[in-house]
């Protein structure tokens, strides 16, 4: 597969330790001989915790080392895929006009200058520049796609049914309900993340912050302003 997630994917059979298939077979024979036929009985659905634990145990038994990867993921989620990344990008764009131009021309390359990377299958980062008369807002109506390594993992409401259903059709109403009451002269552009191109919003620099350092400006930029449901 050419569009896999980070890090580069291995071939499917790499997860299988030697004897992998035969061990499945051996186990299923044991099950058949040990267990009564329950196929006609309908058991209650296991809790989500039990179901996750079942997959984790199955992975563990097959030598896929899920425990290690879970720890690695927690670290990524808590320390690497965070909105402070996008905030740094915005602060740099506010203070460095040449960087701003490069960012708008090729977002993926430009964030790389700040040491930020994107998963291999996010091949394109489009930076959406707000102006005093334009508000950009991003969503994913089909699932939950986001520039996770720049904006951070998306908040719960972004992935929820209401936002996905309504923001493309009732953008001004939805933004108002979320606390962003835009005057009629501000146009709205909604960006639906239906492919693996990713988006981030470049907010307008707040008045009275000219001359501030990048570090100070970074602290002003919120995750919600990078998604476009808030202005600064």
């Amino acid at each position: 597969m050419s569009g896999g997630a980070v890090p580069p994917p291995l071939r499917a059979n790499r997860c299988a330790a030697p004897g992998f298939r035969s061990s499945i077979l051996a186990r299923s024979i044991v099950e058949v001989t040990r267990m009564p036929d329950q196929s006609h009985e309908r058991q209650p659905t296991a809790s989500v915790q039990q179901r996750v634990a079942a997959i984790e145990a199955a992975f563990d038994e097959r030598g896929m080392k899920p425990g290690e990867f879970i720890e690695e993921f927690k670290q990524l989620a808590e320390e690497k895929w965070i909105p402070e990344n996008g905030a740094r990008v915005v602060a740099k764009a506010w203070t460095d006009p040449a960087f701003r131009q490069r960012l708008l021309a090729n977002g993926r390359d430009a964030v790389g200058e700040l040491g930020l990377s994107m998963p291999a299958h996010h091949r394109h980062l489009v930076v959406l520049e707000n102006t005093p008369t334009l508000q950009n807002v991003i969503c994913c109506t089909l699932c939950s796609c986001t520039a996770i390594s720049i904006i951070g993992l998306p908040p719960d409401w972004y992935k929820d049914l209401e936002y996905r259903a309504r923001v493309v059709r009732q953008s001004r109403t939805v933004l108002k309900e979320m606390g962003l009451d835009l005057p009629p002269e501000i146009e709205i552009r909604v960006w639906d993340t239906t492919a693996d191109t990713r988006y981030m919003v470049l907010p307008v620099q707040p008045q009275g912050t000219l001359g501030w350092s990048e570090a100070e400006l970074t602290k002003l930029v919120t995750r919600d302003s990078l998604i476009g449901v808030a202005r600064l």
Binding site: G3, L10, E56, F69, I70
Partner: peptide, 25 residues
């Protein structure tokens, strides 16, 4: 993003499966 510990675990497990090439996005 997450509300309960199992949510992080399952997110990690799905990414592990993608990393191992069991399935794609």
């Amino acid at each position: 993003t997450f509300h309960e510990p199992w949510e992080k675990r399952v997110n990690a497990l799905f990414l592990l499966a993608v990393k191992l090439g069991i399935f794609n996005m």
